[in-house]
Amino acid sequence: MRGFLDYVAGDSILHRLNPITKIILSLCICIACFASNNLIFLVGIIGIDLVFGAVGHVFDKAVSLLKGLVKISIFLFIIQVLFVHSGTVLVPLPFGLDITLDGVVLAAKVVLKIIGATMPLALLLSVTQMSDLSNALVKKLNVPYQYAFTFTTAIRFIPIFADEMAGIMEAQTSRGVEFDTKNIFKKLGLILPLCVPLLISSVKKINSSAIAAEVRGFHLRNRTSGYKDYPIAGNDTVAIFLSVLLVLFSLYLNTL
């Protein structure tokens, strides 16, 4: 999943959509995921996410993102299954930890909702430049530039911190700390002391970033500063319409 938040340059229809449309589209897919309880619909949403990946020429990235999310979801699925005990017992287990039909269905729904809702947000960042995202938020939604900048900076820093953490773990492994162990619990225990170097390097990076922004006139920026305009075109209207339709369809499915 390394680099899954990085922008991939291109000229697909998704790249050309207005950043605000892309935000609305992603949010509508998220809302539809969390509003729906229909398993087939949730699987369909993941299919739509993959189609978006293909249309935006980031299909490989979408598939690797899906694989990463599936790996994380397995853990969540197991926990969920072990904590729901109502319904028909499928596999009897000791200590009252029976695996039930209700547990499996609920776990599947939770996992599918999380996968379906996460993918569009990550894909949105693959087809939208951060500067366009913050400028469109400022110009179209009147979000103060400081807040838009904070939002995009937070996203931009995720892969930077991930790289930093990987570097710290590499350095500690070289000192004999067993980060190369296959025991996940031991590994988690070893990660805790590394919060200190990560925190310190993060604060340093953020401080440098803040100074760099200040010296480039950050406090002077407002709605009128950007020269690029973000008009809502025909494609955007259609995309917004379809997004709203998707949410309504998910709500309709719940009434059946």
């Binding site: 930093e164 070289s174 000192r175 004999g176 590394l194 170097p197």
Partner: peptide, 24 residues
Amino acid sequence: NKTSKLAKRVGLLFQNPDRQICCN
């Protein structure tokens, strides 16, 4: 052989010491 095992024989000093330092 794992890196953590080889660390007894090979010490690696990184360019950025802040990645290595983790104690009070």
